[in-house]
């Protein structure tokens, strides 16, 4: 952790800086990070980027192929669908809804789950036990099924799909945080802090959270991946986004009848989902390795 600056003074890096410097040496993960930042920027400024409105119909070009395939034009880079709408614009708009929704859900789950999980781990007795068994009961139901049940209770729409997915993923995150904090409470540095008379907030801030970065990164990564897949699945099955709104899963579902005529209408959104999940996983895997290496 000692690094020398140009005046040869010894300077001590904090553990977080040290972990970051290890992460920066992993080129693959850094590339994934920049791609991820690019994806976030695209989802933020999707409306500015698109050349055509995703709902604008072009009767001149129906079902045209991407430009690199015979019959495609550079007017519509990724081709058009059966109503002549630009596929690239629809992909970007759909990506905005899927990726942005998953991002919002992940932030919300992390915030709410961390609060509930920490409180549950630090309390003893009846309250903790009730929560514990409630979570156990919820974890027996598959998350997608919970999302379906919630969607049936509300009406199918994009907002309700987001709420349903976040509620279905919340128990997993709470349980994960609960378990990691529970394992930390036996550590002697936490016991020593408790002996010093530290309040629970101080205990979490200095004793517990700095030492559970690795499980948190893994948990957040899993929640994000599952959120993307579940939003897309709900959209695909017609329980999520409703026409005319678009979303990656819904794009696939809309074009499923056209799979022989223009397969790229299905391939491109599927590929995009794949790329998002790969990028996020490579980035967090690099981060996780850096944290593990930095803690040794």
């Amino acid at each position: 952790m000692l690094i020398n600056n140009e005046f040869n003074e010894q300077k001590i890096q904090s553990p977080l800086h040290y972990i970051w410097s290890i992460f920066l040496k992993n080129n693959f993960a850094v590339f994934a990070m920049w791609v991820g930042i690019g994806l976030i920027l695209i989802s933020l400024f999707a409306d500015v980027i698109v050349l055509y409105s995703p709902f604008l119909q072009d009767p001149e070009h129906l079902l045209s192929a991407p430009y690199w395939i015979e019959g495609g034009t550079t007017e519509h880079l990724f081709g058009t669908d059966d109503l002549g709408r630009d596929t690239l614009a629809r992909l970007i708009k759909g990506f905005q809804f899927t990726f942005g929704g998953a991002l919002v859900i992940t932030c919300a789950i992390t915030f709410v789950g961390a609060i509930i999980g920490s409180t549950a781990a630090l309390t003893r007795g009846l309250k903790a036990s009730v929560l514990h068994h409630l979570l156990d009961a919820l974890l027996t139901i598959p998350t997608l099924l919970i999302a379906f049940i919630l969607i049936v209770l509300f009406d199918p729409s994009y907002q309700n799909a987001l709420i349903a997915v976040s509620l279905s993923l919340l128990p997993q995150f709470i349980r994960g945080i609960y378990n990691t904090i529970d394992s930390q409470l036996n550590k002697q540095y936490v016991v020593a802090l408790q002996l010093d008379g530290a309040t629970n907030i101080r205990l979490l801030r200095f004793g517990i959270y700095p030492n559970i970065l690795e499980p948190i990164v893994t948990l957040v990564n899993r929640i994000f991946t599952m959120a993307i897949l579940e939003i897309a699945t709900l959209g695909f099955l017609g329980f999520g986004t409703q026409s005319p709104d678009i979303e990656l899963g819904k794009l696939i579902a809309d074009s499923i009848d056209l799979s022989y005529l223009s397969p790229w209408l299905i391939i491109l959104p599927g590929l995009l989902i794949f790329i998002i999940i790969m990028v996020v996983n490579i980035f967090t895997e690099g981060l996780r390795h850096a944290i593990i290496q930095g803690e040794d």
């Binding site: 001590i12 002697q188 540095y189 020593a192 530290a198 200095f206 004793g207 030492n211």
Partner: peptide
């Protein structure tokens, strides 16, 4: 404590570790 390897928090500086009991 028995083993300082596990009783000193690896993410806190010595100064912070020692000032916690005084602060509290």
């Amino acid at each position: 404590f028995q083993n300082p390897k596990v009783s000193l928090n690896p993410k806190m500086t010595i100064g912070k570790i020692l000032s916690a009991p005084l602060e509290l």
